[in-house]
Amino acid sequence: MGKWWSILFGVTMIACTLLFVVSPFVGWWLPEGVSTHSWSVDLLFYFILGITGFFFILTEALMCIFMYRYCSSEKAGRTVAHAPGFFVRTYNKWTPPAIKGSIAKVLNDPHKIEMAWTVLPAVILLWIAFAQVDAWAVIKYQSRMPRYAEKNQEFTPLQIDVTARQWEWRIRYPSSERFVEWMTRKGDPEILKDFQSFAKIEQKDDVKLVNELHVWNHHPAVLQLSTRDVIHSFNLPHMRVKQDSLPGKQIPVWFTPIKHNTIRLSADGDVWIDGYNPDTKAQDRNQIWDLSCAELCGWGHYRMVGRLYVHESQQDFLDWLKSVEAKMLPPRAK
């Protein structure tokens, strides 16, 4: 009877493992990674999944085997004949005669086993720890973020001000004219000053939108994150970006998309839709990328969801920005 318990354990654990094997094929898995961060994050994820998966199977298998093999045939509470000096007996019995030399020595000495299973995981864990420092630094350290046209940076990052409030994202873009100036007049100290003032000072010609974050492909975007009321968390799962916004602070976040999902609906119109998959050249539900709040921010937390639009090129982005600006303008005589 007792042996059935090991089978129950084994079957349950196999079912758990199978769930992890099957779910990627059902679509329950990491959303597609579409930024330069996603490669390093995903690699580390799969690497840790491999190591933990290995140790999971190893330990659970051992446990089930032991539970099966060493099940008492007697009822609880009764004593069973058991030879004294069992350590010697145990390990002599278990060690197959084929294993000799140093391995057998280790297996026969509990202290050495203890050392082995301390040092081995320690080495693996330390390696995991240090292997990821760089990926973390690239994503989060402010010193590693793209900046305005510094010596070793060839680009001007797109700057966007994201202000969270209960329960929506208020997003502020520079006007298209101002943005073109940033891009074209690099090195001009006046422009640098203007660039740096963007996040701190709101201007009348800024373009303000709600819940819609627009960037363009293959170009770093720096988002200046702040909040008006409570803590929110800026979460772009497809970009592998997550950052809490803190009241009273402005925190920069950056990412570079490597895939676009937004196209112009018709050649000359100014309607832009997301959900476009450039690989299949078709609309695709999985290409709708959400921008959600990940930190509990009150009763509307769940519905604090916006969208990320990645345009194909800078020109597309500017066209879109101009079309939004045009809608903001007062009616003028033609």
């Binding site: 329960w167 929506e168 819940n211 509307g300």
Partner: peptide
């Protein structure tokens, strides 16, 4: 667009 400055959020999604 919601009403900024009040609790009315945007429902543009």
């Amino acid at each position: 667009t919601g009403i900024d400055g009040t609790a009315m959020p945007a429902f543009n999604m």
